[in-house]
């Protein structure tokens, strides 16, 4: 138990690192996911194509490869001297956005056809139909997969720790190098992740209850 008390500062830093990585990339992923989902159902062919390519490429690329690109190609070739937290958030956010876009798209597909038809028949444009009628309903069906993708994102954020970001995995690495009992470290790190994932699922359960409508 001394492992935790001796290194409380490190653990706190790692926990805060994981939480801020998760929060930052979740925000980016949701925004990007919304835009890409919009692209995928839009009447404009090049945008539709872009959306499809984005989702297909990112869903079939290992996240570690994205991190390799982010940490070795981007700083050396495109933007030198960029912050490593920003790079990690962009890599994680882009990766997760492809999953969120798909969840939203299948949510859009479950909205009854009559809803969109009614919206069109009272003269709404594509953007209005999506924003006022379809997306609010799609969000409800997309919430459970969204929460599971955000939990997956939390777990994936451990990879950022391997690329010199301070997070829980990074702390695990540091402490096991210092020769502490790996089992004890493992337990505390796991509890750290559990706190984050439990909070996410609790948050989403509340959201689901709030947004619930009697059908």
């Amino acid at each position: 138990m001394n492992v935790l008390l001796d290194n409380l500062d490190l653990f706190r830093e790692g926990f805060v690192g994981t939480v801020s990585l998760t929060a930052g990339s979740a925000a980016l992923a949701v925004v990007l996911g919304l835009i890409i989902a919009g692209f995928r159902v839009s009447p404009v062919p090049p945008l539709r194509l872009f959306g499809t390519v984005w989702v297909t490429l990112l869903r079939n690329t290992p996240l570690t490869l994205l991190f390799l690109v982010a940490f070795f190609v981007v700083p050396q070739v495109l933007f030198p001297g960029i912050d490593s937290y920003l790079l990690a958030v962009v890599a994680l956010g882009m990766y997760t956005s492809s999953y969120i876009a798909e969840a939203l798209r299948s949510g859009i597909n479950t909205v009854p056809l009559g809803q969109a038809e009614a919206a069109r028949s009272i003269g709404m444009t594509f953007t209005q139909t999506l924003r006022i009628v379809v997306l609010p309903q799609a969000t409800r069906t997309a919430l459970p997969p969204l929460s599971s993708f955000l939990i997956a994102l939390t777990k994936n954020s451990a990879i950022a720790g391997a690329f010199n970001n301070v997070d829980l995995f990074n702390i695990q690495k540091v402490l096991s190098n210092e020769g502490y009992n790996i089992l004890v470290i493992f337990i505390w790190i796991t509890i750290g992740y559990l706190i984050v994932t439990f909070s996410i699922s609790a948050l989403f359960r509340t959201l689901e209850r709030r947004l619930e409508v009697a059908r």
Binding site: T154, K155, N156, S157, A158, I159, G161, A162, L168, F169, Q172, K173, S176, I182, L183, F186, I189, T190, Y193, L194, T197
Partner: peptide, 15 residues
């Protein structure tokens, strides 16, 4: 619920 990387790393360093 444990990130896969944590499990792999723990196995590697001898849990």
């Amino acid at each position: 619920s444990v990130p896969l990387l944590i499990t792999i790393f723990a196995l590697w360093v001898g849990i």
